[in-house]
């Protein structure tokens, strides 16, 4: 029996679906509760809808990019695992690396013609064990992290938003400089994405254009992507 027949079998799809269903259930549970309590803390229906809608609009581009990456996983790991790992926990780069480590541990290269069911199983073991820590640590310690955040603000409520903006800028500076310093089409994509967003948000804020706020990220990411692809 070819390992891909096992990888794409019904029991594997059922196992993969259970994890994705928990992820969706959590999203829907939190969504519902945020909507109800959002109104109680004084957010309007329009604000809640705008938040949800803009999140959905902006997710399309990245999700299609993830789908492109899923193809790389599909050919060597089959549908069920690829679909599960990218809907839940993983990212393309991480999963490819973990799967590669798993097959190499039994002396086979990921996707090589001699790939067998044992190598496949070890890849899945490695992907599972390599990521389970994120679920366990956030499952157990997330409320404790709030104490760290308050400590960073030194007990001053006014400082909390500053801390958040600093953290966001720090994280995205880390993600950005890794691309900027390549000095290639990725640098151009970064610069065009940044410039477009700057223009769109300044316009949206000064003229109070709500639709433009919601589409700003979607338009910026595609503008950057398309212009940069002329430089590849």
């Amino acid at each position: 029996m070819d390992y891909l027949d096992i990888a794409n079998s019904l029991p594997m799809w059922i196992a993969a679906s259970l994890a994705v269903i928990v992820c969706l259930c959590q999203a829907i549970l939190f969504l519902r509760r945020s909507w109800i309590d959002g109104k109680k803390v004084g957010l309007t229906d329009e604000q809640l809808r705008a938040g949800f809608r803009s999140g959905a609009i902006s997710a399309v581009g990245p999700a299609v990019a993830i789908l492109m990456g899923m193809v790389a996983l599909l050919v060597s790991l089959g549908g069920a695992i690829s679909w599960m790992r990218l809907s839940f926990i993983g990212s393309v780069m991480f999963e490819l690396m973990a799967a590669g480590f798993g097959t190499e541990a039994v002396g086979i290269e990921l996707g090589a013609p001699d790939m067998n069911v044992t190598a496949f199983a070890n890849a899945v073991w490695t992907m599972t064990l390599g990521a389970v820590g994120w679920l366990v640590i956030t499952g157990l310690f997330t409320p404790n992290m709030e104490a760290i955040r308050r400590k960073l603000a030194g007990g001053r409520e006014a400082l909390l938003p500053v801390i958040t903006i600093c953290a966001m800028l720090g994280a995205f500076a880390y993600l950005s400089t890794e691309r900027i310093l390549r000095f290639d089409h990725q640098t151009i994509a970064w610069a065009i994405g940044a410039l477009t967003m700057g223009i769109l948000l300044t316009t949206a804020r000064s003229r109070n254009l709500q639709w433009l706020r919601e589409w700003s990220l979607g338009i910026s990411m595609f503008t950057g992507m398309i212009i940069a692809s002329f430089f590849m």
């Binding site: 800028l169 995205f172 993600l175 691309r179 994509a189 994405g193 410039l195 700003s216």
Partner: peptide, 14 residues
């Protein structure tokens, strides 16, 4: 190229 464009856009927003 979509990823660096997203990083640039979010960086500028903040």
């Amino acid at each position: 190229n979509i990823l660096p464009a997203i990083f640039g856009a979010i960086f500028v927003q903040f």
